Amino acid sequence: MTTEAASNSKKPRPSSSSFSSLPEEVALKCLLHVPRCYDLNLSLVSKTMRSLVRSPELHRLRSQLLKSVYLSYDFYFYQIAMDPSPSYRWITFRPGEKTTDYQLEQRFPRHSLGYAVSVGSEIYFIGGRSLPSTRLWILDTQSGHIWTAPSMKVGRSEVNKTAVGVVEGKIYVIGGSEEDSQVEVFDPQAQTWDFVGEEKVTCESRFSASMKQKVYMVNRDGRVSTYSPREGINNDATEMPSDDIIKFVCVVKNVLYGCFEWSGLMWFNTKLKVWRKVVDRDGKDGKLELYSFAAAKMVEYEGMIAFFWPLCNIDPFKENILCKLIALDRLGEEIRGRIEWSGIVATLPRDIVLRDCLVVSG
């Protein structure tokens, strides 16, 4: 052996990095993003890895990432008249799993439910549905408890057109009163309401959604305006589909989507201020494939769009709730959609009316 080779053989080799050498907290956060289908393979790597995969802490962290759809419903007027204690009923489920994996949630008095918005595992009911109210109710979906929180300063209702959005964890309420009113913001951490600025504004939108630290407000004809805590109201001109009416809006991966009565599923180009059609996987008009004209609700779910609508059951006293999940892909200046999953997610009594549809974490 040469002197140089002997010298090299004595040099310490650089220590190779090992996953098991990471602090447990860091290792668990890494495993959190690995699909569960790989758990068995990971368990065979080492005793340490097997311990991490089976850790109750990893199970807890994963459960926090799980999202469920909360869908409320009640009955048509003639059935309500026969109910001595009218209330909304809630079901919860995860689309794409077994169709029997839904749960009936507790009832809540009808008068207590105003505009609904979710933040984490909590659902906030703001104001009144038909009559102005300053009330705020909070439902903790993990415990099932519902309680009243501090009231708003202005009475608001959905009938008077209300826009609600969540920006940086705070809930902003725009409009909803019989006269022009200031924007109010609720801080869930401090449990306080405050006015934002002194300007009184009017809300003309029927739909709202949160995106990029702004509240997007959409009129029935598709006109889009925004509210930002820093910039206030912005009413830039919008190029709209001619003679069409929007039915729902939602945000998926920082893109605003709208479902129109005749044009079908569309997305909003925020730079050009124009609505564009979502095409199918072949780049063709996907109106018939991607959208159901019977759809009653639309919501973002796990990076996809979920449509829901009731359909008759073979039992004349029951109704099925159908779901269609639309996966979305950006390709240049196009957004293409494809049906990822569809099926029955619940079977409920006949003649129901779907109300709120929210996605809740945890």
Rank of each mutant, 00 (worst) to 15 (best):
M1K: 07
S7L: 13
S7V: 14
N8F: 12
S18L: 04
S18M: 07
K29P: 01
C30N: 11
L32R: 12
V34K: 05
V34T: 14
R36T: 15
N41W: 01
V45F: 09
T48G: 15
M49G: 12
R50C: 15
L52G: 12
V53C: 13
S55I: 00
L61E: 14
K67Y: 08
K67D: 08
V69L: 05
L71K: 03
Q79C: 10
I80W: 03
P86D: 08
P86V: 01
P86L: 03
W90T: 00
F93H: 12
F93P: 07
G96A: 11
E97A: 08
E97D: 13
T100Y: 13
T100D: 15
Q103V: 09
Q106Y: 00
R107H: 10
H111N: 03
H111A: 04
V117G: 02
G120I: 05
E122C: 06
F125V: 00
I126C: 02
G128A: 04
P132S: 06
T134A: 11
T134N: 07
W137A: 12
L139R: 03
G144T: 00
H145C: 03
W147T: 00
T148G: 11
M152G: 04
M152I: 10
K153C: 09
E158F: 01
E158P: 00
N160I: 00
K161G: 02
V164D: 08
G165N: 02
K170L: 05
V173G: 12
I174D: 09
G176Y: 01
E178M: 06
S181H: 03
V183S: 08
E184Q: 10
F186G: 04
Q189L: 13
Q189N: 13
Q189H: 07
T192L: 02
T192E: 12
D194Y: 04
G197E: 04
S208D: 04
Q213S: 15
K214Y: 06
M217I: 10
V218K: 02
V224K: 02
S225R: 03
P229Y: 04
R230N: 13
G232Q: 10
I233T: 08
M240L: 11
P241Y: 07
D243T: 03
D244T: 02
D244F: 11
F248V: 01
V251F: 04
V252P: 05
K253V: 08
K253S: 15
Y257G: 09
C259R: 07
S263R: 11
N269G: 05
K271L: 08
L272F: 06
L272T: 15
V278Q: 10
V279G: 07
G283P: 06
K284I: 03
G286N: 10
A295D: 02
V299M: 06
E300W: 07
I314G: 08
E319I: 07
E319H: 09
L322W: 11
K324A: 10
A327Q: 15
L331D: 14
I335Y: 04
G337K: 05
E340N: 15
E340M: 05
E340Y: 09
I344L: 06
A346I: 10
V353D: 10
V353T: 15
C357H: 08
V359A: 03
G362K: 05
